[in-house]
Every structure is written in structure tokens, then in C-alpha cells.
Design a protein around this nucleic acid. Structure first.
Lengths: 215, 215
DNA sequence: GTCTATAAATCGATAGAC
DNA sequence: GTCTATCGATTTATAGAC
């Protein structure tokens, strides 16, 4: 609360940072349940009492971790939600999203774990992650809306969202494949996704403009 | 071991079944860590001592659960790995896989959880699931090999496997989307995947037969 | 095979000296 | 803010009566 002394304030920030860092490492390795306060205390070098001084409880610790990690990731990836019309090629988007180490080792794995566990429905950490996920889906939808021809959009206003859902699903699925130990050629598969969706959009566009093909 | 008495044998089978059933329900709700022996005991109606009589330990209980659930699911879905050339339309495959309730509530959620948690790498349950997953990937690859024209296969012998990886990734991603609470129109999205991959294959086929298009 | 009782370890969280 | 010590609940797993 009181930030009279700059030194104390800096120490607080540093302690918080160390705790969050330790929690992120452990959570990526062991999930929510597997990350105990005792382990966080051990890895961060601070006693468990300090953890509860900086964070209300375990759930709150994870919620703040997800928020912080997301902002860090956005910053490091050079992404800003307000950045105008960032429309990288889809293959590049997928490749970046899948191949980046700091993404793999970061909070997304934890988020997927929280998403899958029904018992966590009331958890603040899970809700925080789902909110972030929704924002990313909206951003992806906007990307697709920019990419689609106007007449196609007008003909089927749900298409952009479905393409966005599809892109995210494939990305999440690829993440799981890596976690499961499958061997993936990211570049090859990113290109395949990009081409498949491109061809699909081309066919839909053709259908809209020429009317349905004669069966 | 001894199966002298049919009654005792039947009682053993029944107890095992009840324990596995209770574990599956709990695991789908609460994941691996969240499913405690005490809860299994409570829901199955048998004391915890019985659980340890029928199963060596918690990990072993989960490993047998995954094996059993997979066989049940295969049976109920009418699938047999030996069934000759089962080549349903891809859209149907995706739709069946995604929309079936007994699949959602079954062991796949647990398997994905086990896949994502690195701490479980040495777990027998996780390894059992990954083995099943590999078999499904092989089956999917065979499906694609049957579906692809011979000359395309000869030109790129990795294509069928990549298409299989892609199909499974999208399926897993869709599973996560449902778990995350996204609203999905399965029929719509299954058709989109089917068409996108169909168009992709068509383009690859054309390229193989005509040589690369003039840039 | 079923069930009670409990061991041994660990969990999240708190109190209070410093 | 840091840290020790610990509470009460819960965990996996076992011992042994029935």
C-alpha cells in the first residue's frame, strides 16, 4: 500500500516477480494441482509466508500469473491489440504461434489445463484465461474479416468467426500434439493449413459469385 | 487368481466395474489430481481398502481405466481396427467424433489432461493413452492413404500422415473449444474442415499431375 | 473380498516474532 | 516484508479384523 520508500517498493516488485516466475515454471511442468505453495517457495527462494503476503491465495496467484504472462507474451511477440491491420500470412501466424519456445513453455499450457478441468469452473485463474482466449478469438475474427472479400462476408456473416474458431482449434490441437510427443513439421503443417483454408475460401467465393454449381 | 466359485468371480468383476465407472466419472469432472481415492470410494460405494485390493495403486487404476474406456468406446462406436476399409466421409468422422456425448464425457478429456501435464511423463496411465493415440493416428493415416490417388501418394509419401495429424489436431482443438465453453456449430465446422482438406488435396493432385503452375 | 482404522506425508493457509 | 513454526484438513497407501 504505502510506497514511501523506493527501496522497499523495488524489493516488493522483485519478490512478486520472483514468485510469479517460479510459479510459471512449475505450472508449465506440473499443472495447477501439482504446483504447491511449498514448491513455489522453494524455487523462488522465498518462504511460503511471503507468498501469502503478496497474493491472497493460490487461485489469486494463478490468476495474476496468467494476466502477467499474457501481457509479457504480447509484448515480446510485438503484438498490440490496437495495432492497425496486422495481417501476417496465415502460415506465418500459425508457425509463429506453434514454434515459439516462450509460447510453448509459457502460460498457454496452463490455460489449456485449466480449460479442461471442470472442477476449476469457479476458479478466477480459469476465468481470466478464458477471457484472454475470447479476446484472441475476436482478434482472429477481425483478421479474417479483413481478409475476406466484401461480397462473401455479406453473403455469410458467420464465416469469419468460423474460420477464426477453426484456426484456433488447429493451433490448440497442434499444441497438444507437441505435448503428446508427436513429431511435427511445423512449417509443413502451417503451410497445409494455410493452403487448405485459402482453397476453401476461394471455393466459397466462387460459389457466392456464380451461384451454386450444378449438381 | 483362483476362480473356483462363479459367484465370487462375478462379484469381483462387478466391484472392479463399479470402481472403474466411478473413477471415469470423477476423472472427467476433476482430472487426475482432483480424483482422490476417497472420492472414488464414496461414489462407487466400496471402501478405499477395496480399491487397493483390485488395483495396485492410483496410477495403475487410471491406466486400466484408460484401456477399458478405449475398448468400450471402440465397441460402442462400432469401430474395429480390423474392419476393412472403413472410409466414412471426413465430415461425418469429425462430426461423430466431436458431437458424441459419450466421447466428450469419456476418457478423451482425461487423456488430454495427462498429455498436457509434464509431471506425468512417467505415469503408466499417460503412456497408455499415448499408445492409444498413436494407434488412432495410424488408423487415420491409413484412411487418408486409401483416399488419396496413387500418383499423389507416390509423389509425396508423407502427405497422408500430415493430413492425419491435421485431422486429429483439429479434432483435439475442437474438444478444447467445447471445454472452454466456446459455442460451436459442429456440423458447420466439420463441413468446413472436410471441404478445406478436400480442396487442398485437389490442388496438390493438380500440381502433381500438371507440374507446378507458372508463377 | 469387504471394511475399519490409521499411518505417514503433504496440502493450503495462518499466527506472530523479528 | 521476511521468515519460522504450525494448524487442521486431506492425501496415498497399508494393516489386520471379519
Amino acid at each position: 500500500m504505502a510506497k514511501r520508500a523506493g527501496v522497499q517498493h523495488r524489493q516488493t516488485e522483485e519478490s512478486r516477480r520472483r514468485i510469479l516466475e517460479a510459479t510459471l515454471e512449475l505450472a508449465a511442468e506440473r499443472g495447477y494441482e501439482g504446483t504447491t505453495i511449498a514448491l513455489v517457495s522453494k524455487r523462488s527462494g522465498l518462504p511460503s509466508g511471503s507468498v501469502y503476503h503478496h497474493f491472497e491465495n493460490k487461485d489469486n496467484l494463478f490468476a495474476e500469473l496468467i494476466e502477467q504472462s499474457f501481457e509479457d507474451w504480447m509484448r515480446r511477440a510485438g503484438l498490440h491489440e490496437s495495432s492497425p491491420r496486422r495481417r501476417a500470412a496465415l502460415a506465418d501466424f500459425m508457425h509463429d504461434r506453434l514454434a515459439a519456445d516462450d509460447f510453448h513453455h509459457g502460460f498457454w499450457r496452463l490455460g489449456l489445463l485449466l480449460s479442461l478441468e471442470r472442477r476449476m469452473v469457479d476458479s478466477a485463474a480459469r476465468q481470466r484465461f478464458l477471457a484472454i482466449r475470447t479476446r484472441m478469438l475476436d482478434t482472429l475474427t477481425t483478421c479474417w474479416e479483413d481478409a475476406l472479400p466484401g461480397d462473401v462476408l455479406a453473403h455469410d456473416d458467420g464465416l469469419a468467426r468460423r474460420l477464426a474458431q477453426f484456426t484456433m482449434a488447429t493451433s490448440d490441437g497442434a499444441f497438444i500434439a507437441v505435448a503428446a510427443g508427436d513429431e511435427w513439421d511445423f512449417r509443413e503443417l502451417s503451410c497445409m493449413l494455410a493452403d487448405a483454408l485459402h482453397q476453401h475460401v476461394a471455393r466459397v467465393t466462387q460459389t457466392v459469385r456464380q451461384g451454386p454449381e450444378p449438381a
